[in-house]
Simulated assay, not measured.
Amino acid sequence: MKLFSNTFQTLEQGLDYSALKQKTISQNIANVDTPNYKAKDVSFKNAFQQAVQSSMRANRTDPRHYEFTSSSSSNSVIIRKNNSYQHNGNGVDIDHEMSELAENQIYYQALADRLNGKFNSLKTVIGGGR
């Protein structure tokens, strides 16, 4: 018997994605003046495929049906190669990174608030509705 729904696992995976994105944005901002540094980004598509593969299973009712597998790589961090914003070959646009940072912080906070709400609901149920 499964005690909890997949909501906790999905929220956890969302928080993991957001933490990885925060780390890459922080690295980009820290290297804004580093010559020939190329900005990095986190691919949501790869992170989403990993989350789907780990939490969703397809039930094949016939051996002729296709398997639901994908060959996505485990590394979700990609390098943006074609951008050069400074004369020293640096590929970090500080305005873009700051807006990505603000967006990611809002996303992380929304996930954390939702997870907190789920735990409060469990606490209410355990306490008998009080």
Rank of each mutant, 00 (worst) to 15 (best):
M1T: 02
M1S: 02
F4W: 10
F4S: 15
S5G: 10
Q13N: 13
L15P: 15
A19E: 14
K21E: 15
K23G: 06
S26D: 07
T34N: 10
P35C: 03
P35W: 05
P35H: 04
K38N: 11
K40T: 10
S43C: 09
F44Y: 00
N46F: 05
V52L: 03
S55F: 08
A58C: 00
P63F: 14
R64A: 13
R64L: 14
H65W: 06
T69C: 09
S70R: 07
S70G: 11
S72H: 14
S72F: 13
S73W: 00
S76V: 15
R80N: 15
N83C: 04
S84A: 00
Q86T: 13
N90H: 06
V92S: 02
I94V: 06
I94Q: 06
E97H: 03
E97T: 00
E97L: 03
S99E: 07
E100D: 11
E100T: 03
L101M: 04
A102Q: 00
A102S: 06
A102N: 02
E103K: 07
E103A: 08
Q109A: 09
L111Y: 11
L115Y: 05
L115N: 01
N120C: 08
L122I: 12
L122V: 11
V125W: 07
I126R: 00
G128N: 10
R130I: 03
